[in-house]
Design a protein around this nucleic acid. Structure first.
Lengths: 208, 208, 208, 208
DNA sequence: GATGAATGAGCGTTCATTCAT
DNA sequence: GATGAATGAACGCTCATTCAT
């Protein structure tokens, strides 16, 4: 993300912040955002409560830093995956696969995020924008663009606007990520995608 | 639910509890679960904070009673709506329509519930079970039964188990209820259902 | 001060507030404003920390209530005393005597106030005005008026403006009150006044 | 005070301490004693917070060192000024003039000192003694001696003990210094002294 | 049953001070 | 000697809950 930090001091600062973030994330996961106290986080992290305030200006700020970190990564992964094909519908499929993989690899994170944020779709978008995230909006724009192209190519139905289709995708994907995050043991992601993609493309009536 | 309360005392107790619930709900809606204090709820209700503790054992309990009441109503409405047809697929469609209507008519409730509860699908189910709700499970059972019948009649694809289809429905429906709750002004429910039902049945590829 | 409180509840509330004020004052006296903590005040008062926040909105507010109470009383006593004569110079003398008496009878209060407030004269006036006190300003106005009358009657020197004379009085009186507050055992107030009045009227050169 | 520091090391130490004191003073003046934090002082000084603890054992100690420095200077100036005449009353007048000048030239310092210390007269004396200051006591002794001489020469009234007269002077002078410190723009010191000296010598009744 | 004043544990946050480097 | 990241005790304040009336 920041490949050349200005100098040694800044690099150390950033590294410590990351370490604290890792530890805080774990603690928040254990108890949930509202329930966990700064003293608990500190004591589980093995440092003093004051220490966090050298790196994050409040409990809320600490939490947002955790969210930010993952969201940025998620959007980067997804975007990279979508570049794996030129076919717009296949781009969408690859993006979803990336999201599922990410969800599976970051189960704990989602477990917290899902309980701490008003994480329903609409609310989440608003929240992310408030937190200065533009990635999600960009992501949506790109996704809608692909859907439109797919419509032009006759790969996707044209009687529903691309924006509505995107919303539908958002909803379904997000819910399945949640499922991956909450279910233990981890299900087979490829298999899961096969089913979800089947439902997304064919609905519950039309089938293979 | 309890058509014959044991005696006058119990009947009075239940009536008062309902009145308190009405008032508390309004107050919680106004400020949100975490933000509102018991003194605020009491003062808006026009009674003393202590009074609530004669009817509910904690703030959390009070909140859950509010959720319960609506959930029960929601399940009753949905079930009643599904009886409007003998065709299993049409039963599902009518059920969804009922859910949408309910969501639209109880926007405020959902706005609170969605921010106060870990309301994602899986989490919600767990929560509802913890809270002693069996309705949702029963609902699912009934819904799965209809889906299976629809599969047998060739109305619904057979390559995906009815349980998975139900989960898919759950996810999509819940998300659209959220959308109805969060969006202002209230969208046209019939039109919304047409789109969602189109996506549910036909997916994003096959069209009408 | 408030001879007919609206009703029983308000009367009880006011009485409790006064009792808490008494206790808090004692505790603040013991440790000083900055040093004393709300828990200390509470524990010395024999109540819980939260209780104070039912009557005063912050530590600062509690402190100001203590100051206000005494300042109001002080100004009332002084004013009443000044009515004891028609001669403007004698009015001034009687006012000073009242201040001294008050200072002597409220030693503890002054000991706190003098350490907690930026109690130097100028700063004090500003502070009192910020706190919504107009009494001191009114007092000054009345005092200056008397000095002007005394000047007209040839009782007081005319080469210095009445405002400057008043400032001089303020300074000297306040310092002597401090002396009375800080010295133990309590000196003879009448004797003290005799000396101070001698200095005020005659300076260090002219004598009786 | 310490004209021959034992050795180079001590001399360096003392020099550094002075430099830190200069910087800390500026920072304290900027924010006030209670408000300013050690990190602020350090960052404005351009050194690390820890550094101060090599020279001063606490924040309080640092503050007292600042006070001490000024007090010592004040007493030296005053004493020097008093040597400007052989007439004991004129000595007093010259001393007061020196105090006023000093107050005027060190407005910022007094502004801090007056809000940070329990600066009323008595309290200040006690404080200064606690801090190891003997200068003020010496000053008083010298001042009282002059007053006594003036009494013997018939220059000053004899019905009031020299100690009481000195206290009176202290009070009046201190208050006028405060006035000089708090008022902006700086008043004419000579004119101020004329008025104060008039009041000190002649009181409010006898005049020029 | 209803009250509401009182409770007090526990919160997020600050900042003078320390000590390993 | 100088550093500054880390400390952690202590702060003012909140609010779900209780219980004497």
């Amino acid at each position: 993300m920041d490949p050349q930090p200005a100098n040694l001091r800044d690099r150390l600062h950033a590294a410590t912040a990351q370490a604290l973030l890792d530890a805080a994330e774990k603690a928040m996961l254990k108890y949930g955002y509202d329930k966990v106290t700064m003293q608990q986080i500190a004591s589980e992290t093995g440092c003093a409560p004051g220490t966090f305030y050298l790196y994050f200006k409040s409990k809320q700020d600490l939490f947002e830093a955790i969210i930010n970190r993952h969201m940025t990564t998620l959007f980067e992964c997804t975007r990279a995956a979508m570049d794996g094909s030129d076919n717009p519908l296949e781009k969408i499929r690859l993006g979803i696969l990336a999201c599922f993989r990410f969800g599976q690899e970051n189960k704990l994170f989602f477990q917290v995020a899902l309980t701490a944020l008003p994480m329903r779709n609409r609310a989440l978008r608003v929240k992310l924008l408030e937190m200065g995230h533009t990635e999600h909006a960009e992501m949506s724009r790109y996704s809608i663009e692909q859907l439109r192209k797919a419509q032009e190519l006759g790969l996707v139905r044209k009687d529903i606007p691309a924006e509505t289709l995107d919303e539908f995708l958002d909803v379904v994907i997000f819910s399945f990520i949640e499922q991956l995050a909450m279910v233990d043991p981890v299900p087979d992601v490829q298999e899961k995608l096969r089913v979800v993609w089947g439902l997304i493309t064919g609905g519950i009536v039309g089938g293979a």
